[in-house]
Nucleic acid binder design. Structure first.
Lengths: 242, 242
DNA sequence: TCAAAAGTGTTAGATTTACACCCATGA
DNA sequence: TCATGGGTGTAAATCTAACACTTTTGA
């Protein structure tokens, strides 16, 4: 990728020895690590488990996997997500590449972090138990393996930005939801309370948040109207502003 | 990085054959590519050159290099930047990891992109010619090698966000600058004109942008006051709002 | 004397924030 | 009947955006 061949010494030597431009020696393991966000009982949660392999066996950890030669990094993230959840087409965004030399105690690994959003109801409890992962409140995460806490922090920051740009809340909620649920989610993501009336005012301006005639009585005696995200309306005029 | 060893078939086979957890076969080349922004003649510019090696010899390209085993990805980016500019401690931010399988025509390469800011005056012309790179107006970039145009687009977007969060303009300007220069820079980055009076009103509120008694007469007959970024004041109260 | 850039305040409109009460229901 | 969450509007404050003329000076 340099323009000239005035490379620094060690690479230069290799080049002179007749090695190809693509130097085998600089190859490195690349993994993807996934922060899977869910929303349950009013809390933003992250799916984590205990490492079953060394190094770090038993430590809390994000779920991840190595990038294979025949797949893009996005594909790798999707594969890992599918392995864990059995779900495809999850909302997923790249967060950051972590590349300190000693970040993994076993070998040098560069890790590309993604975050994904799932509706916890869509995630099969059996599968969750099989993988021995748990939904942990993001504000009560334990110390995790390597730099995984830092990864979650970065992912959360990114998600906070994205929630005001794209309608991503609906990925974390069931198809039908109440405005209070939506507000609690927003508050959990942003980490601060918002005013109910102001929040609802803004929601009313977004035509793609559709009121149904259905009423949810699980959250209150009186019952609350259920709303739904209308993707078609959103695509036609995405007047999104949160 | 998986918790369990219930990996999909090909990896599983390798594991059964007794391979280590860190599978040599998934190693891959990782490069860093740098988008070096400069500001000159009222335009935001990017430093690019023509590839001197195959594949893609002769094509316009960003400057980059492979990540070595003994350096972090940030170190790699700093090294590459130093190679090219002879400058250390440049403002530099990670942009994105590009990881499509076929993105590089030669071999599978995952590329982590950084952008950096330099004051074009600090960049030695001799060095620039030696490396055969040129400052190209970001709005007039040629078709570049591989996905390099996309990289610049992402970097620019990120820089636009960052210019309203952090005082980064000063990295692109000389120590002393006029408010018109600062405004032109801001306009070049954002891609739209702004109102002179409103702009200056906001500048006045930032105490760390310090007016000097010096006057620049190169830009006008009347002359304009020169300003300077006061880092100490900024660190004490970074009331930044652009 | 005039062209060219520097410098300077005000106002209308839009957006944001703060705030309090009634409603419907099941226990 | 009362405790609980659902639902609603207004006014003040803040922020944003639009706008035009005077100054200085070198050519």
């Amino acid at each position: 990728m340099n323009f000239t061949d005035s490379l620094t010494t060690d690479t230069l030597t290799e080049e002179r020895k007749g090695m190809t431009y693509y130097d085998e020696h600089s190859k490195v393991l690349v993994s993807v690590d996934c922060i899977i966000f869910g929303f349950d009982e009013g809390k933003l949660r992250v799916l984590i488990g205990r490492r079953q392999l060394n190094p770090g066996r038993g430590l809390w950890s994000l779920y991840g996997g190595f990038v294979r030669n025949n797949e893009s990094i996005d594909d790798a993230a999707n594969r890992v997500l599918f392995e864990l959840t059995g779900l495809n087409n999850l909302y997923m965004r790249q967060v950051w590449a972590f590349g300190n030399v000693d970040r993994d105690p076993g070998e040098r690994v560069i890790s590309i972090v993604y975050y994904a959003l799932i509706n916890t109801n869509d995630y099969d409890e059996e599968l969750r138990k099989q993988h021995e992962v748990e939904w942990i409140n993001i504000d009560e995460l334990p110390q995790m393996y390597s730099d995984h806490n830092e990864m979650v922090a970065k992912a959360r920051r990114m998600m906070q930005e994205n929630i005001s740009r794209e309608p991503i809340s609906f990925r974390l909620l069931p198809e039908l939801f109440t405005l209070t649920q939506l507000q609690r989610l927003y508050e959990a993501v942003c980490g601060e309370e918002v005013d109910k009336r102001n929040f609802r005012k803004r929601i009313k301006e977004m035509d793609f948040i559709e009121k149904t005639e259905l009423i949810d009585k699980t959250g209150s005696k009186r019952g609350a109207y259920l709303y739904r995200f209308n993707k078609k309306v959103y695509n036609e005029e995405p007047n999104f502003k949160l």
